[in-house]
């Protein structure tokens, strides 16, 4: 009995140091029902809500498809920007799965947009898509981190109550060609809805 206990003690003391020190882990994703505050602070979301809907909830409708915003209209620019003539915007949602992860692509004149990770939140027909994009323009010497928010209500093949918001989070922009961080612009479809073209 003494020998067994002693052997156990030696084994324990030897094994105690086996688990290595580290600073990495793999965390479980969870269902989003709001735009996380680390993506967009609460004050920013409250400010955006004056100009567009941010529909919350964990169970939005499936909104896969290509949508066209035509004509695109500026609703509000927090930096005072004014303009009227915008190119039509196309946006696409693909691979929306049960945890509301999807791929979001947008393009205007040329269909060369790159799909990026996006998340869909909402309740029933009302939805909000949010995504974070890192944009680099080496030719013009700037890079930026943008949050894009697209919201609306899907009824048949149309999205009504449509809103499209861009928020600047961070940028490297020596020539100051971009809006400053924490400023945003909100657009809508002048017709009041955007059409779903195809899945």
């Amino acid at each position: 009995m003494v020998v067994v206990v002693a052997a156990a003690a030696v084994a324990v003391l030897t094994m105690c140091g086996c688990l290595k020190e580290g600073d990495e882990s793999i965390l479980l994703p969870v269902r989003n029902s709001t735009i996380p505050y680390e993506v967009l602070p609460a004050e920013m979301q409250d400010s955006l809500r004056q100009w567009m809907d941010i529909n919350e909830g964990g169970y939005p409708a499936k909104i896969e498809g290509i949508y066209t915003v035509k004509p695109m209209e500026l609703v509000y620019a927090s930096d005072g920007y004014e303009w009227e003539d915008f190119h039509d915007l196309n946006w696409r949602i693909q691979e929306q799965n049960d945890r509301n992860f999807a791929t979001y692509t947008e393009w205007q004149t040329m269909a060369n947009g790159t799909g990026r990770e996006a998340h869909v939140i909402g309740d029933g027909k009302k939805f909000t898509v949010w995504t974070v994009e890192d944009v680099v323009n080496e030719a013009d010497g700037w890079s930026a981190e943008l949050v894009t928010i697209v919201s609306g209500k899907l009824i048949d093949q149309r999205v009504t109550e449509f809103g499209y918001g861009i928020v600047m989070r961070n940028k490297v922009d020596e020539d100051s060609v971009l809006i400053s961080p924490d400023f945003y612009r909100v657009f809508t479809d002048k017709d009041g809805f955007c059409i779903r073209r195809e899945d």
Binding site: L27, V30, V39
Partner: peptide, 11 residues
């Protein structure tokens, strides 16, 4: 800590 599978919905 460093999250090896970091996405917009990891918490």
């Amino acid at each position: 800590l460093t999250v090896l599978n970091r996405t917009l919905d990891t918490r």
